[in-house]
């Protein structure tokens, strides 16, 4: 798969910051939709990476949610056993709206300090290597020389750092979305009350 630098930057700028919210939204689904959240998220990324163009996408966050929804619906159609529950609840899967762009702007600044905190929280060796590689832009070879370790060790630590940071950003979430990441687990009403459904008193 060839993924252009522009597309990677677009995904990083417009999609990754919403991944945590997406996961939270998916976790809040009341019924078992029969697929793993990780799988849905990865498939959504694959779809977004494969789009011919993205410049028509005005609201990337909603687009991401729509794509995830389509992934679920497709999985449901593929699976042989589909409960009525699952279908009705996906029909009413409402995509939560987000306030317009100024919200994002303020979030940007919060994100920067979060990124710093995340990097600081990496295991020591990972952090050293990652800082030299990514922040100072040294080559793998230069980092190896500087820290007096094997190049393969440098690569190993850089990989680990990137994988950890990817998860910290994508799962833990940054900025405003992260503040509510505990909601799904702590508020039990979400597990038995499906969004968009009402019950008689």
């Amino acid at each position: 798969m060839s993924l252009s630098r522009e597309r990677a930057a677009w995904l990083g700028c417009h999609i990754l910051p919403h991944e945590a919210a997406l996961r939270q939204w998916l976790a809040r689904r009341p019924v078992d939709i029969g697929c793993d959240i990780d799988d849905i998220v990865q498939e959504a990324y694959a779809i977004l990476a494969g789009l011919e163009r993205v410049d028509h996408i005005r609201n990337p966050r909603n687009y991401l949610f729509e794509v995830a929804k389509s992934v679920i619906l497709q999985a449901l159609r593929r699976s042989r056993v589909v409960t009525i529950d699952a279908l009705t609840s996906t029909e009413v899967m409402q995509i939560p709206e987000e306030a317009p762009s100024p919200e994002r702007v303020a979030a940007d600044r919060q994100e920067l300090s979060h990124v710093t905190a995340l990097i600081a929280a990496l295991p020591v060796r990972c952090r050293e290597v990652f800082t030299l590689r990514k922040l100072q832009g040294l080559s793998q070879k230069d980092v190896a020389r500087q820290l007096d370790i094997a190049e393969s060790t440098v690569e190993k630590h850089t990989i680990k750092a990137l994988a950890l940071l990817t998860n910290a950003i994508g799962r833990g979430g940054l900025g405003r979305d992260a503040a509510s990441s505990t909601r799904a687990t702590q508020d039990e009403t979400f597990t038995d009350a499906s969004a968009g459904q009402c019950e008689r008193a």
């Binding site: 990083g12 990754l16 990865q42 920067l112 990514k134 940071l165």
Partner: peptide, 27 residues
């Protein structure tokens, strides 16, 4: 498809971090 997705996601994170650095994350 999960490989493709995970790869795109890692590329996204890498770009995200580069952008944060460019924006001046005090890291």
């Amino acid at each position: 498809v999960r490989h493709a997705g995970a790869f795109a996601r890692a590329m996204a994170a890498s770009a995200y971090l580069d952008r944060a650095v460019a924006l001046g994350a005090p890291g």
